[in-house]
Design a protein around this nucleic acid. Sequence first.
DNA 1: TTGACATATTCCCATATAAGCATGTATTGT
DNA 2: ACAATACATGCTTATATGGGAATATGTCAA
Lengths: 115, 115
Amino acid sequence: MARAATTSDVFNAIAEQKRRQILVFLAADEKQVNEIVEGLRLDQPTVSKHLRVLRDVGLVRMRRNGRHKLYQTEAKAIRPLYEWASTFERYWSDQLQRIKQRAEQMAREQQRENR
Amino acid sequence: MARAATTSDVFNAIAEQKRRQILVFLAADEKQVNEIVEGLRLDQPTVSKHLRVLRDVGLVRMRRNGRHKLYQTEAKAIRPLYEWASTFERYWSDQLQRIKQRAEQMAREQQRENR
DNA sequence: TTGACATATTCCCATATAAGCATGTATTGT
DNA sequence: ACAATACATGCTTATATGGGAATATGTCAA
């Protein structure tokens, strides 16, 4: 079995760096393909192909405007990713907290010695 | 050019569903390979290979214990992913807020009609 | 209608997978 | 020392990829 299709879910779609760039680029406002090409310095077919993948998994939405097409990031489609990552938040905070506590502990011991 | 290596970064490493499962499974406590195999019902070589990828990108840490190896998720390695996803948080909240505002607006109009 | 502009798709290629099966390696108990 | 246990790696195969170049499709303007 090969790797899962890039269009199989959000996790696979965002594995590609250029697609991540595109998503950031399109987060605030809708933009034409042209603007993406110039803004990110990618070839036009490359951009179109990545947009296709992003569209297939619902990470961007598109509307036509004359002979342009306007793409924009569908922010809410990123939530599954965000939520999955959040699963681990408590664990890394725990670790950070432990480190912090240890540091405070050491500071207290230092003080005691200096007294 | 093919797809970027699964070991090239966290984004590629977590594209695989089974690796995501493993990370969740190892989030709270360290576990032996054996336990992963049984807990997630995967073949042992499959698990070892996925662990290899996860280790290469720093998503799990390992220590030996006798003839076992204990793996645990390195939660802080997931932060880049979390932070990237957070970039979009304001956009999806904006959208949600807009939806909420629209709902409230409609409610007000309803009230006015009923008066 | 035709031409120009904007975007999408196709074809080819090099590359990297993930699964399954077989085998290798390390560590411990006896 | 040896057998058993616990993992890791090697090999093969089917499959999907992303880039580049060429080409197709779609839409407007004159």
